[in-house]
C-alpha cells in the first residue's frame, strides 16, 4: 500500500506492507538514527516522537502513521545538540547506539514533566536501555538539561 509520511516536517512517499513496523520503514527511507535493537519493544533504541510523544517505532504500524507527525533526532536540530553537548561534557557517550532515542526521549520529557526531580527523570527514562555507560554520566548531563540538581 502507498503511504505518505510526515517526517521532521517533510513529506515522504513510500510503499509498505500492512504489517510493517514504522521502524523498518524509517530505516528504509534513510533515517538510520532510528536504531533496530531488540525489535520486541524492550530496549527503547527505536524510539521516535509521534505527535511529540516518545513511542517505540518497532511496535508502531507504519500503516497507522499516515496522519501523524513523526520526529526523529535529525528533526530536533539544535535542540538535540544542546542535549548531546551536555551528555558528552559528562563523558557519558560511549558506543552511541542508544544516543538518538535517549536524546528524543529527554526532549519529550522536558516538555512533559512539570516539576522534574531525579526520581521522575529516572522513571521517565526507564525504557531507554544503555549497555555500556552505566547511566550515571548520561544522567548528570540530563539533569543539567532538566535544571535539576
Amino acid at each position: 500500500m502507498k503511504l505518505k509520511l510526515n517526517i521532521n516536517n517533510k513529506f515522504y512517499n513510500t510503499n509498505i506492507d500492512g504489517d510493517e513496523s514504522l521502524l523498518d520503514i524509517l530505516r528504509k527511507i534513510g533515517f538510520k538514527s532510528v536504531k533496530k535493537g531488540c525489535d520486541t519493544g524492550t530496549c527503547g533504541v527505536c524510539s521516535v516522537l509521534i505527535d511529540g510523544k516518545p513511542t517505540l517505532s518497532c511496535q508502531f504500524l507504519a500503516a497507522r502513521a499516515k496522519d501523524v507527525k513523526i520526529t526523529t533526532v535529525e528533526g530536533l536540530g539544535k535542540q538535540a545538540d544542546e542535549i548531546v553537548d551536555l551528555i558528552v561534557s559528562e563523558g557519558a557517550d560511549q558506543c552511541g547506539y542508544c544516543g538518538p532515542s535517549l536524546v528524543l526521549t529527554t526532549y519529550a520529557m522536558k516538555k512533559e514533566l512539570k516539576n522534574p526531580t531525579v526520581e521522575k527523570i529516572n522513571h521517565y527514562l526507564t525504557g531507554n536501555l544503555c549497555r555500556c555507560s552505566g547511566y550515571e554520566g548520561q544522567l548528570r548531563g540530563i539533569k543539567k538539561y532538566m535544571g535539576v540538581k
Partner: peptide, 12 residues
C-alpha cells in the same frame, strides 16, 4: 500502569 516497560511502550 506506571512500571510497565517504559513511557515509549505505554504511549503505544
Amino acid at each position: 500502569l506506571e512500571n510497565l516497560i517504559g513511557v515509549q511502550f505505554r504511549n503505544n
